[in-house]
């Protein structure tokens, strides 16, 4: 019983991390319909950003959020404006360009750091909450709280603010949104910036948990894609719950089968969902095809 409980807790904490990483990808994917292969690298940049803040100003990773997140927002806006906006209606070229960015970012960081692993320690890293037989690492719990807060904030934002409504309008129909006087390009730039900022947030919160390497983004990106497809394209709560589903699957597969096979298990679930419900568990039916309609 306690081992089952332990697996569930491990799975939920892992799910919080996956949900956090997926949140930005889902926003970009859902609104702009861009498959951003470089999203994992944005998380990686966030982690290294936290490390740089720690190294030069001795900042705790949790405080460096206030530097890293705006920096990543800016980076995302620039990326969208100069690289992805010109490729708006060409999904293949987007894949091409974002994969180029992935290679570029990964290897620039590799060239700068020469592949050495770093961690950005936080004062919170040492704390562990013990509840009966369960040990809960505080830094992982923070990630779980953060993803919940981010999901709450995002769903409030898109429902209740003018900018959020504009983003939803653009998601539904670009042309109609443009005719209503919405600046589609600006909405995209802000959305991409927000997606990159969320990646930066994920990176800073993960910096105390994982040892950094330039390739670490690759560990998250597949999970994030699985979460996004599973949860439903463009659905904030879909990504949130999808994160927990993938986290729990990984925890159970790791305990009962073999940790080495976790990716294979994800894939089966992933493909199964794609076949049965291509729009994802919480997505709108047919959402997966809307993005491919010619939109101007």
């Amino acid at each position: 019983m306690s081992s089952l409980l332990n697996i569930i807790v491990v799975g939920l904490l892992l799910g919080g991390i996956y949900g956090l990483v997926s949140m930005g990808l889902n926003l970009i994917f859902g609104v702009i319909r861009i498959v951003n292969f470089a999203q994992g690298e944005l998380v990686m940049l966030g982690m290294y950003g936290a490390y740089v803040c720690y190294l030069f100003i001795g900042l705790d990773p949790y405080l460096s959020i206030f530097i890293v997140v705006p920096a990543l927002f800016l980076f995302g806006v620039i990326m969208q404006r100069f690289i992805l906006q010109p490729l708006q209606n060409e999904p293949m070229m987007q894949i091409f360009a974002t994969f180029g960015l992935l290679l570029l970012l990964q290897n620039v960081v590799l060239a700068v750091t020469r592949g050495q692993g770093y961690t950005a320690p936080s004062k919170l890293s040492e704390f562990v909450i013990s509840v009966g037989p369960l040990n809960i690492s505080v830094v992982r719990l923070v990630a779980l709280v953060a993803v919940t807060a981010a999901a709450l904030f995002l769903s409030w934002f898109v429902k209740n603010t003018m900018a959020g409504k504009a983003i939803r309008a653009v998601t539904q129909d670009r042309r109609a949104a443009r005719l209503m006087g919405i600046n589609v390009e600006l909405a995209f730039m802000l959305t991409f910036g927000a997606g990159a900022a969320l990646a930066g947030l994920a990176g800073t919160l993960l910096a105390p948990i994982y040892t950094m390497s330039p390739q670490i983004g690759g560990n998250f990106i597949m999970a994030a894609f699985a979460v996004v497809v599973l949860g439903g394209l463009g659905s904030v709560w879909g990504a949130y719950i999808g994160g927990f589903i993938i986290g729990l699957i990984e925890a159970f597969a790791g305990y009962y089968l073999d940790p080495a096979l976790k990716t294979a298990i994800w894939f089966l679930v992933f493909i199964g969902v794609l076949i049965v419900k291509p729009g994802g568990l919480f997505g709108i039916a047919g959402a997966e095809e809307v993005g491919l309609r010619e939109q101007n």
Binding site: I83, F96, G100, L105, Q106, N107, V108, A111
Partner: peptide
């Protein structure tokens, strides 16, 4: 990783 930096840049420029 210099070869992959150049490859990445080429990809973006071609796209």
């Amino acid at each position: 990783g210099a070869n992959l930096i150049v490859l990445g840049a080429i990809l973006i420029l071609f796209a």
